[in-house]
Structures are given as C-alpha cells and as structure tokens.
Amino acid sequence: MSARPDILCIGSVLWDVIGRSDLPMVAGNDKPGRITRLPGGVALNIAMTLRRFDLTPALISVVGDDPEGRDLMSACGRMGLMTQHMLVDADLPTDRYMAIEAQGALIAALADAHSLEAAGARILAPLGDGRLGTPEAPWTGPVAIDGNLTEAVLAEIAVNPVFAAADLRLAPASPGKAERLRPLIGHLRATLYVNLEEAALLTGQSPRDARTAAQALIDAGAHRALVTEGGAAAACADADGCRVCTPPAIDARRITGAGDTFMAAHIAAELRGIGRADALQQAVLAAAAYVAGDDDD
C-alpha cells in the first residue's frame, strides 16, 4: 500500500445492518429474508469501491473505542483501506445504519450517525496538522465528502484553506441531508453527485428528469453536477453542456450503496484519465452491476 493515499474519503464509516427479502413488502409486513452486518457508510462504501479499482483511499471519520469500532477498523485494514487518520473516541459509540430492502427496493432505513456529528470538525485534524497537509501546503488530491457531516462542518470545509487545492466530490448521503450541501454548491472545485430527489431539494425546483436536474444545479451555481435517476438515466452537466447515459436493463437485487458505487466508479475513471462521456458510462455500468448483484464476491 502506498504511503500517501490516492484520495480521502470523509464522512460516515459505520456498520450496515441490512435485511433483504425476495418477496414484495410494504410497511408493517413481516417476511422471511436475510440479515447481514457489513462495513458501510457513504464514505466507506465509496472507499471500498475505489479500492476495487486499485486506488488507495484514506478514511477520515470517527469510530468508538468499543468492540464494534475495533472490529470495523480491522475490517477496513484487511480491505487495504488506510485507517491511521481515523479519530478513535472513547466517549462515542460506533455509528450504525439499518435498512430493509425487498426485491431491490428500499422499504425503510435509519442512519445513526450521531457520533460523526458529535465529533464535528475534529475528524479534519489530519488535513491541517501536517499528516495530510497544512493551511500553507494543503492537500492537492481528490476528496470525497458525504452529507452525514453537519452543515457547520461542511460550511467550514467551504472556506478552510486546507481544502483550497482539493478536488472536492460531494454526496448528500440521503435526501434528508441534501440541503446540508448548500454551503458548497458554488465551490469552484466541487462536483455534486445527487439523485433526482436530492437535486430537487437543492434547487427548489421539480426537475422532470436527470438532464433537467443536472442543468438546474448548474444554473444554481454548481461547478459540475451528476444526477442519477434510478434505472432511467444518469446525467453529467457543467459549463460545457450536459451528457446523458442510459443504464442497461437489469433485475434489481439490492439498492443500498448503489449511489456510492456510481460516484466511486466515476471518480476512479476520471483519475485514470478517462474522458467525461466514458467516465459517466463506466459509473452507470458499475452501479447497474452492483444493483444486479453481479459484483458479489
């Protein structure tokens, strides 16, 4: 593993507890299925996918000094992820996420990222104390940031000199947290990765599809925006125009983590120098394979 990471992944690093059923479900149902616990969180999902593209990500987040935190750090290390810049806090429990999926659709989910919120800007210390950079010599590579960070921390990132030279890649984490990204919408080095619902929340509009949503974000001041529309389309817009890619038809087996896979595959493609149209297509195909379960180990 390289001593210097290829990319920093800042945000939620936690345990995912996912229940999946092959049967149709609605709220209140009790159906047979499978329950798994696996490393998750937006920042960690992105990092795991980047690792599959032979990149070395460093995780910037917090875990508790508890059995769950130690297990999670060990699991991340075995996957080849850099964890030495993680904050370990004895006073905070390791965060968790719980979801129920049926036939590849999300029925309900709860994100318990309270420790990440409580840690606040303390997780950013390695970017300013010399381990990964200083205000005078800031980090110059890509940084994936998720909306599980508080709005106050995201607002600090927007103006903090330690991020002045970084290539910022932003994901809301969920529609309920999309508006936390508002302080970074106009950042000249930021790329937004959102779905149609999140784009609507950020723009205050009701875009009819991925193309119009991506253009609405550019009109709202975004430097670049990628918008996914489930199995219908994905769009990438910037000052030079808008590109649209249609995903292949698949049978969905899972949904949690699909957006993170899309984002990571797109970042990996661009870091390899792939052009924007092809990078968008690679991201769409990677997300489709994930949803179909084709990339299962």
Rank of each mutant, 00 (worst) to 15 (best):
Q84Y: 10
Q84F: 05
H85I: 03
M86T: 09
M86C: 12
M86S: 07
L87D: 03
L87C: 02
L87R: 05
L87G: 00
V88L: 02
D89C: 06
A90G: 15
A90E: 15
A90Y: 08
D91Y: 07
D91V: 07
L92N: 04
P93H: 01
P93F: 04
P93R: 09
P93W: 02
T94L: 00
T94D: 03
D95T: 03
D95S: 15
D95I: 04
R96K: 15
Y97A: 13
Y97D: 04
M98G: 01
M98E: 03
I100M: 06
I100S: 08
I100E: 00
E101L: 11
E101G: 09
E101W: 08
Q103P: 01
Q103K: 12
Q103S: 12
G104M: 12
A105E: 12
L106H: 09
I107C: 14
A109Y: 13
A109M: 13
L110D: 11
L110C: 06
A111S: 13
A111E: 02
A111P: 05
D112C: 01
A113T: 14
E117H: 14
E117P: 00
A119D: 07
A119K: 03
A119M: 07
G120T: 11
G120H: 11
A121R: 10
R122V: 00
I123S: 07
I123G: 09
I123Y: 06
A125I: 03
A125H: 10
A125Y: 02
P126D: 05
P126G: 09
G128M: 05
G128T: 13
D129C: 06
D129S: 09
D129V: 08
